[in-house]
Amino acid sequence: MRARDEEHKRRQDGSNGPIMAGLEAASVNERTGRSASHTPWQDGERRGVSSLAVKLAKYTAVGGITVRNHVAYIYDFLLRSLFLLVILYVFLQLWTVTFEGEGTSRIAGYRFDQIIWYLIFAEAIIMASPRLSLKVEEEVKKGDIGYQLTRPMSYLLFHYSAYMGEAAVRLVVNLAVGGALGLFVFGVPDWGFGWVGYLVMAAGAFTVNFLITMMIALCSFWIEETWGIEFVYNKLLFTVGGMMLPLETFPETLQKVCAWLPFQTVVYFPSKMAVQFDALLIGKFFVIQWIWIALLSLLLALLYRKGVKKLNVNGG
């Protein structure tokens, strides 16, 4: 009976998906011995429940509580997203002049309204991304990371859940503010499945953004300031990530380079899918995005393992 339970558990653990598997593997010491279902409560109610469901509940609870916590900041976010309006107004003017100058109805395949909606979606993602590296850097420097490790949960998955929770709240606010502007200027858009495309791509986009930002943040195990690296990364998102301009507007050589970088998956993919939904293309985007997620998860796991080892040996 017991052996069968174990086998069942193992099979379920195996179907964890690349990100979960990668991040789970990251927690040093966490995979030694039995799974985390060994609790004071185990002898009884726990037996029938799969450990995966319990684990999942753990991290969804983290996500849920972050959402609730950040709803308290909602006016803060609203105020901040007013800045979004300023940026969008500037771009609106810029693109009006550009379209007038070109004298065409489309530039690089985008209509005027599509370009502006593209910017609204792109900015919404960038401005919704939580300042993870500040938080983690603080935890590493002050040693709080140690206290986090005394809990029966993976440090990376904890932060991932919290990150996604916060990003969700901020994204909703940004979309409401940016969307209001879009509706005001262009009226109700017709994107078909664009919304679905955007949301599916945005989930992956924030995951990629989390993985890269977390890697940058974990560098604080070795270097004093990670702010500089984060600054560069953000500028890369602005440019080759496709925040300022859709990648189609770039020269061909640059487009080819961008296609091999992860940055496009954060901004360009979701924004493009929102305004020019394409069932075939989204499949391709999805695969590329998740290959990056798998790869970056692996890298993050390695980096984290090295960092925790340093913490274990040298106290951070």
Partner: peptide, 16 residues
């Protein structure tokens, strides 16, 4: 502790 951190964590509490 350093080998079974996660398993131990279930039985330990801390107040700072």
């Amino acid at each position: 502790p350093w080998r079974d951190r996660q398993r131990l964590a279930f039985h330990v509490g801390s107040v700072f």
